[in-house]
Amino acid sequence: MIDMGAALEDRTKTALTAMRKILRTTELNSKRLMQETGLTPSQLIFMQMLDDEHEQTAGFVAGRMGITQATTTALLQKLEAQGMIQRRKGETDRRQVWLSLTDAGHKVLQIAPDGVHARFHQEFAALEEWEQAMLIASLERVAAMLGNHDQGVAAVLDATAVLSSD
């Protein structure tokens, strides 16, 4: 006879082990990226979106990244202080601010290692649509189970580090 309690406990341990592996991989990726470029994964992705799209507004990048205005402002200030991005006032609407990479920002992107986000994107894109939908639903369910109901948390794996680090 199968002990259902023990089977559930084993599955719980397996799920927690998988989550620890994900967290450890992203942590190691973040450390490597920081050592090689001085950037966090969120900062790198922000810069990549400016590189892909050329000059953009902060709101556009925030929307594509799925982050709040507060997180965007923190990223923007840090990247500008590091000399990676520059701001330009709109010519027709002076309230509008356009962002672009500096030469230093372009150079850092050239040396930045392909990280966890790039590998995940490549592997995820190779999945069937139903597999992608199932994985998204499962991950969202795990986040909800852990009590993370904050819609302001970035789609990027280290959003809180951006707000709490200097």
Rank of each mutant, 00 (worst) to 15 (best):
Q132M: 09
F124K: 02
H149C: 00
V156W: 08
W130F: 09
E123K: 05
E128C: 04
N148I: 00
N148Q: 03
G152V: 07
E140L: 14
V156K: 05
G152C: 11
D150Q: 05
L139A: 15
Q151C: 06
V153A: 08
M134I: 08
A154T: 14
L146E: 13
A126F: 00
M145E: 07
G152T: 10
M134C: 08
E129W: 13
A137V: 01
S138C: 11
Q151A: 15
N148G: 00
E140A: 14
L135M: 11
H149G: 00
G152Q: 10
F124M: 04
E129V: 14
A126T: 00
L146N: 09
L139R: 14
V156Y: 09
A143G: 13
L139N: 15
A133E: 15
H149Y: 01
A126L: 01
E128V: 06
A137L: 05
E128W: 05
A126R: 01
L139T: 14
N148H: 01
A126G: 01
M134P: 03
L127Q: 12
G152F: 10
G147N: 04
D150L: 03
E128R: 10
M145G: 06
G147T: 07
V142F: 12
E123M: 05
A155D: 13
L127P: 05
V142D: 11
D150M: 01
A144F: 03
R141Y: 10
A143T: 15
Q151Y: 11
Q132A: 06
E123R: 06
E129F: 13
A125Y: 03
V156D: 11
A126Y: 00
E129K: 10
L127W: 07
A126S: 06
S138R: 12
H149E: 03
Q151K: 12
N148Y: 02
A137G: 07
M145Q: 06
Q151G: 14
A155K: 08
N148E: 02
S138N: 14
Q132T: 05
E123D: 06
L139S: 14
Q151R: 13
L146I: 06
M134G: 12
R141V: 01
A154R: 09
A155W: 12
M145T: 04
A154P: 11
L127F: 07
N148F: 02
D150P: 03
L127S: 04
A125P: 00
R141A: 06
W130K: 10
Q151M: 13
Q122I: 09
Q132R: 09
L127I: 03
